[in-house]
Design a binder for these strands. Structure first.
Lengths: 329, 329
DNA sequence: CTGTTAGCGCGTTCAG
DNA sequence: CTGAACGCGCTAACAG
């Protein structure tokens, strides 16, 4: 295994000089910089990230904290895209990644969690799927011990950024398109989980639309569950012209109910997951680029780790019509 | 941050003694062992795994190599279960995990891959979804530089174990049950991918069944694709009594075709994924415990890293009937 | 059985 | 602008 020492010897300079070149420090002459870089290439040197982490004390190691959805298991797709987006981007930026699940911290205190992260020499974390009920993780964020990026939850402080699409506007847009396409006068809105940050934003969006277009609006809580959405649709769909759902999964549930009741109502969803293809219908949905969101989160964490200050980032989305052939081909 | 030095001081012993206790080395008296353990608890000490990895030179760091299925995106569920099973078990055993995707190694040479793994101080790898076409990864395994566990591919040598269910028997079992339940005389078998290790085993299973029960057997390659399976079913389903598919996803495709053709044929699948619920029908399938398989793989790697020798492990499976209500409730 | 010592590979002062 | 020297937290020989 070729180490930084070998490179130094080969280039005829000191170890620290090599280190400076590798980490793009200023005080190195262009001449030696080139010499070192050549040696690096010739020897195929790749710095040992473990040693680097130990030495520089938590600089390039980050943790991905994922809230695996064990109840509604069908939406692994979202977590998987988050994961692969983050891991790929991290590799690109030279960050080491540690994937962790919320379940590993169940019943643990804030102190225990912090200690564990310390023991892994972790300097920054990205949190996916945080809800208001995760008090312990919330206080880890508040403590600001780690640089953090929160996906889809509005938490910002000096060391914490948040990344998300504009949920309010997206819900407004997709619902508006569906309403206009079908000339509706009343809406059944099946909302998400009670304490979800995202849920509230989306409700604001649908409320704004209803006001602007003077639509009759009925809101029910679907808890992001297909089954619940199905039940709600059974109970309320007849009375309304269109069904707007806060997730694709719930949209599937609603469509099931409509098919069983043998009535037609336009339905729209939210997320743009592939699973949609299996419902056998087509509909409007908000396509969130989960991988892209995750990549942005890693970049943002990288920025924080390099001294940046916490901020709120808003990403783009698009309204698309999903249909069977789009997906399977 | 409390380090091993603090523990040593607190317990009134040398640093190395603490290290020995932590790693369960033999030459320590029961007395000091207890003393040290008490100090560890009092100080809430958690060893820094990065420093340990650096010092002990690749001992507790393993890589998960996952072949993300980008074409048929619907089966993220399987990879997700593999991942969570492995990560949880690794945490339990005190192993550090690095999650990597095949795509990160595309176009890379064996040497580059090895160097990268070295740079991460990785001592062992687990490979999911390896096929005969992945020549570079194959040669990494052959080189035996890393202790390895291969899931679902029959590669064994001194430093490599493989873990899998008995594919041949499982295919035999699920098809047999379906045939007996429906009194069939002929089978359409939609097989998997051409160069898949698993595909061949399953074909053996269906062949054995056909011989034993004197059934007419037609085999077609479905490439694990829903769309391909749908097409095959369109072309061949009428002529046969039952459709046996080498994956749940293909079973969905076949069922779609049957519905469109408005004919009935019993269908059986393989995997037991949740996605099945969305097909709206019920059928027999082989339930593989993906998380359990993955846990076993990590345990096996742990065994190899501690000096064990490569071997072949076969795990259990069950034949189940999947149906809508099972899944959503 | 215990303590001392020397690294692991790298980052980072601080003289020169 | 360069290089020697120290330390990160831990493991592993070796001495005592």
């Amino acid at each position: 295994m070729v180490s930084i020492r070998d490179v130094a010897k080969h280039a005829g300079v000191a170890i620290s000089t090599v280190s400076k070149v590798l980490n793009n420090y200023p005080n190195v002459s262009e001449e030696t910089r080139i010499k070192v870089n050549e040696s690096v290439k010739e020897l195929n040197f790749l710095p040992n990230s473990v040693a680097a982490a130990l030495s520089s004390k938590q600089a390039g190691r980050i943790a991905l904290l994922i809230n695996l959805n064990t109840r509604t298991q069908a939406i692994d797709e979202i977590d998987m895209r988050y994961l692969s987006g983050a891991i790929n981007k991290a590799a690109e930026l030279g960050l080491d990644v540690n994937t962790l699940f919320f379940s590993m911290f169940e019943g643990k205190t804030e102190e225990e969690i912090v200690r564990y992260l310390y023991s892994q020499s972790i300097g920054g974390i990205i949190i996916y799927g945080l809800s208001k009920n995760d008090e312990v993780l919330q206080s880890v964020l508040q403590s600001q011990i780690f640089k953090s990026v929160v996906v889809d939850a509005p938490i910002v402080n000096e060391n914490t950024s948040c990344v998300s699409i504009d949920q309010e506007q997206a819900q407004y847009d997709v619902a508006r398109k569906t309403v206009l396409d079908n000339k509706c006068k009343s809406i059944l809105y099946i909302a998400g989980k009670k304490n979800g940050y995202v849920t509230e934003e989306r409700i604001k969006g649908i409320r704004r639309l209803a006001e602007e277009m003077e639509l009759d609006l009925l809101i029910r809580e679907g808890d992001f569950s297909e089954r619940m959405a199905r039940k709600i649709a059974f109970d309320c769909a007849r009375k309304k012209d269109v069904i707007v759902c806060a997730s694709d999964l719930m949209a599937i549930g609603a469509m099931r109910a409509l098919m069983e009741m043998d009535i037609f109502r336009p339905v729209c969803g939210f997320d743009g997951i592939t699973l949609m293809g299996y419902a056998g219908k087509q509909m409007n949905t908000v396509r969130q680029g989960f991988a892209e969101i995750s990549e942005a989160a890693v970049e943002e964490l990288h920025y924080l780790l390099n001294g940046g200050e916490g901020r709120k980032l808003t990403l783009d989305y698009s309204i698309v019509r999903m249909q069977y052939l789009d997906i399977i081909c």
